[in-house]
Design a protein around this nucleic acid. Sequence first.
DNA 1: TGTCCTAACTTAGGGCTCTAAGATATTGCC
DNA 2: GGCAATATCTTAGAGCCCTAAGTTAGGACA
Lengths: 141, 141
Amino acid sequence: MNHPNNLGLELHTLVSRLERAGDRILRADHGMSYRRFMVLVMVGELKACTQRALADSLAVTEPSISRMIAALAGTGLLTVTPDPAGGNRRRIALTDAGRELVERAGTELIGRLTELVESSGVPFDTYLAHTRRLNAALGGG
Amino acid sequence: MNHPNNLGLELHTLVSRLERAGDRILRADHGMSYRRFMVLVMVGELKACTQRALADSLAVTEPSISRMIAALAGTGLLTVTPDPAGGNRRRIALTDAGRELVERAGTELIGRLTELVESSGVPFDTYLAHTRRLNAALGGG
DNA sequence: TGTCCTAACTTAGGGCTCTAAGATATTGCC
DNA sequence: GGCAATATCTTAGAGCCCTAAGTTAGGACA
């Protein structure tokens, strides 16, 4: 139950539990998986959102995003259009329904997590800052 | 590239990058995936190691562990025997080869991660303690 | 115009995860 | 003994991720 000095294992189990919990909430309330929801959130945050940019931002590969977008394209939550700037690119954007879902479910999830963190006694801002810094050190922009 | 206030997303990308990096190292040096290696590490740490205990400790489900053990059973790195205490249980244990692999590769991985964390300016012990506390708050023992 | 190069996206195959449902073994109670 | 309850493990089917290899679009240059 306790991994003596193994931060990697500890982070794995933490994220695993967090995402399982988030997945259950999203499936029950919005009929959507946690992974797909993360894609929607990121589409809402990126300025010029291409599949390549999504893959970088979520730290997954292009094929993964390619399939996710294909699966999400039929839901009416986002639109896929050739990039007006040219090139072999797709421009991804949220529809009104997508924006509304991200807004509602996103604030709920973030709220629950923030609450959990603070009730555990871990200082939210410090932990978030540390996590961000580690992410940056690992090549994340 | 930056998720405004979203700790969940930040943790996801961090773990994703960490595990991809670890996976590459393990595959190159020891011909083994990161997931399977985590199982071996945990088998080495648990006193009375059943599949159920492994699933709890790694925050995955019993079917996942069932398949992992089936896949690992043929490698000579661990042994599976009926639990001497009775019940429908398997007792999982490392062989000498398994113990040696966990020892060598484990210290290497932990060393690299520790180095990375400290070079990023994040205080290792604090971050580990926070992560542990969050894990405990999420029902992890 | 034609060829090469690069970047973005897609396809194919395999690994690991989940949920749901089935099989197996022990305990408790009649 | 026999039967139900409980815990553990397994099987089946589907989702998402990865690597490797193929496709498509635009830019550079002769």
